[in-house]
Simulated scan of single mutants.
Amino acid sequence: MGVEARLAELGVTLPEVAAPVAAYVPAVRSGNLVHVSGQLPFVDGKLAVTGKVGEGPGLVAPADAAELARVCVLNALAAVRQVVGTLDGVRIVRIGGYVASDPSFTGQPLVLNGASLAIGAIFDEAGIHARSAVGVASLPLDAPVEVEMLAEVAEG
């Protein structure tokens, strides 16, 4: 089953590609690689949640941040599709994730599992990827999570 058919089977609709918030493009193809710029958890052009991730009042809960990482990765896939035309024949090579973290928060890998598990469900073996999960002091627009991606397009 192709990736596009798998998306339909899962009931996943990719969003419109998010407009860049500065001077860059959402994705660039170089040969058979597609480099996707950092994607924020935009839904309908807006951040539904802002702030730091951690445990406690006034912070974005780690489980909520994991769902936001899933939103980011769907935005990244939309950027890949825009450049390539289809996700069939695409393999995910690497995901890089950034979590705006409360100073005491160390669960960044669990937050990025939201992105990795979504990729695994959509791409199966073609979604096995390398990954980094980094805690940072802040992200653009006060987003809790940002995800970038490297994808490989099958030749042919």
Rank of each mutant, 00 (worst) to 15 (best):
G58I: 04
D64W: 05
P140G: 14
G156T: 05
Q82C: 00
L110A: 09
A5H: 13
R131Y: 15
G107P: 05
V3E: 03
V147N: 03
A5M: 14
V136K: 04
V17Y: 11
R6V: 04
A69N: 01
V90A: 10
D102R: 01
V17C: 11
S30R: 15
A154L: 12
L74H: 04
P26W: 03
A118H: 08
A133N: 01
V90E: 11
A115N: 07
E4R: 13
G107K: 08
P103Q: 09
V84R: 12
D124Q: 14
V3C: 06
A23M: 04
P41A: 00
A143M: 07
V36K: 06
V49K: 08
I92W: 08
A8E: 15
D142C: 05
V90K: 03
A8D: 15
G85P: 06
K52R: 15
L141W: 05
L74S: 01
V71P: 01
G38S: 09
L14D: 00
P26T: 02
V17Q: 12
P109L: 02
C72Q: 11
V145E: 02
V111Y: 00
V21G: 07
A66G: 02
K52M: 09
G107R: 03
L59E: 01
T13K: 15
G89I: 04
L87S: 03
T13G: 08
R91F: 11
T13D: 10
D64H: 13
L74C: 10
R131N: 12
V99H: 05
M149L: 15
G56P: 01
Q82G: 01
L112I: 07
K46C: 10
E16H: 05
V136C: 11
I95V: 15
G11M: 10
E155N: 07
M149Y: 07
R94V: 02
M1P: 07
S30C: 10
G156F: 04
V17A: 09
S138I: 03
G2V: 07
V71G: 00
V134Y: 03
A76G: 13
V36A: 00
D88K: 13
V83Q: 09
P20V: 08
L110P: 00
S132P: 09
G45I: 01
A118N: 07
S101T: 13
V153Y: 01
Y98G: 02
G135W: 06
L14H: 03
A69F: 06
R70H: 04
G51N: 08
V84L: 07
G127F: 09
N32E: 14
D44V: 11
G31D: 01
V12Q: 04
C72P: 10
V36W: 05
P20I: 11
L77M: 13
A118R: 09
V83Y: 06
T86Q: 11
I92F: 09
A48M: 14
G156H: 04
A19E: 14
P62D: 00
Q82T: 06
D88T: 12
L77N: 01
P103F: 04
A61Q: 12
C72D: 09
A121P: 01
A100Q: 09
P57G: 12
H35T: 10
P15L: 10
V147W: 08
V60R: 07
P103G: 09
G89W: 01
R29A: 05
A130M: 07
R94D: 05
M1S: 15
E155R: 14
A78T: 03
